[in-house]
């Protein structure tokens, strides 16, 4: 039975299986639930990818230089460091972070009442790089010679674990999608078994009048697959509606779970894939079960 045969349907085959069976209703419900979960898994994956990308982009073009010396030496070291940075290829701009801005960065962590002026805070220099970037090793060696109290942070140590975490989370999401597809396949295999058991008399009658097993299987497979597709459409629609209600911007600097723009297109194949899984699994189970039936 090819997909074309399935789509065309055997003449009369659709009517021979009772439509109101419990199995077919459960198939629709089960597939709707799986499609719903699949859409959320996809939305989560898209959100993680966007989050990772935005963080990496933010970190990729910047670096930070800390001047850890104290007292008058700090100002002199800062001047020297700025001069070094100005003459380093690959650095677009370098800016000394004013003490008030530095305090503003720390206030969320320590509170407003913290006497920042009494703390031995390092002086920060914010660096923006050109698209080509700079040679961090060469800069580090030069600073070590001219400003020993300077510490260069090119953010690589933040980016690498972030990329690893992003890859792991994306992998986990894909595993969740595979698990959903596997569960869907198992549900369909059970549905085929239940439908055939539920309709033992139908099979007996069809065999009595000379129906081939492929014809009988087609009748059941078509019914279950169409139910699965309908359930998946409902599940996707429900999940999409729920996602659409979530605000487009996320909290605390996180991107929103709601897909943006073309990302919505990623959920469209879910009903088709659900129907394909249903068709393949149900057909295989039905033919195997019919073969084992006397």
């Amino acid at each position: 039975m090819s997909l074309a045969d399935f789509l065309r349907g055997a003449p009369g085959a659709g009517r021979v299986v009772p439509s109101a069976g419990l199995t077919t209703r459960l198939v629709a419900f089960g597939t709707a639930a799986m499609a719903f979960l699949a859409v959320f898994a996809i939305a989560l994956a898209v959100m993680l990818i966007r989050l990772g990308d935005s963080w990496q982009v933010d970190l990729a073009g910047t670096a930070t230089l800390r001047i850890t010396s104290a007292g008058e030496a700090r100002e002199a070291d800062t001047e020297t460091a700025m001069e070094v940075l100005r003459t380093t290829p690959g650095i677009e701009t370098a800016r000394v972070v004013p003490p008030l801005e530095q305090q503003a960065l720390l206030e969320p962590w320590f509170g407003k009442d913290m006497p920042f002026d009494t703390l031995p805070l390092p002086r920060l220099i914010e660096i923006e790089t050109t698209p080509e970037g700079f040679d961090a090793r060469a800069l580090g060696l030069r600073l070590a010679g001219e400003v020993p109290a300077a510490r260069l942070d090119d953010h690589d140590r933040w980016r690498a674990p972030l990329a690893r975490a992003q890859a792991r989370m994306t992998g986990l999401t894909l595993a969740a999608l595979a698990l959903i597809a596997g569960t869907l396949a198992a549900v369909k295999a059970l549905a085929a078994r239940a439908a055939l058991a539920e309709n033992a008399q139908v099979i007996d009658v069809l065999r009595l009048v000379g129906a081939r097993d492929t014809w009988i299987a087609r009748a059941f497979v078509r019914r279950i697959t169409l139910q699965a597709a309908a359930g998946a459409v409902l599940g996707v629609a429900a999940a999409a509606a729920l996602l659409a209600l979530i605000p487009g911007t996320g909290a605390a600097g996180l991107p929103a779970l709601r897909p943006q723009g073309l990302a919505w297109a990623m959920v469209l194949p879910v009903p088709v894939l659900a129907a394909a899984v249903a068709w393949f699994t149900t057909r295989r189970s039905a033919l195997r079960l019919l073969k084992g039936r006397p």
Binding site: A13, L206, G210, A211
Partner: peptide, 14 residues
């Protein structure tokens, strides 16, 4: 009637 037509139905269009 559909039951009686089954031998034809399983063969092709009625």
């Amino acid at each position: 009637e559909e039951n009686i037509l089954l031998p034809f139905t399983v063969r092709g269009p009625v």
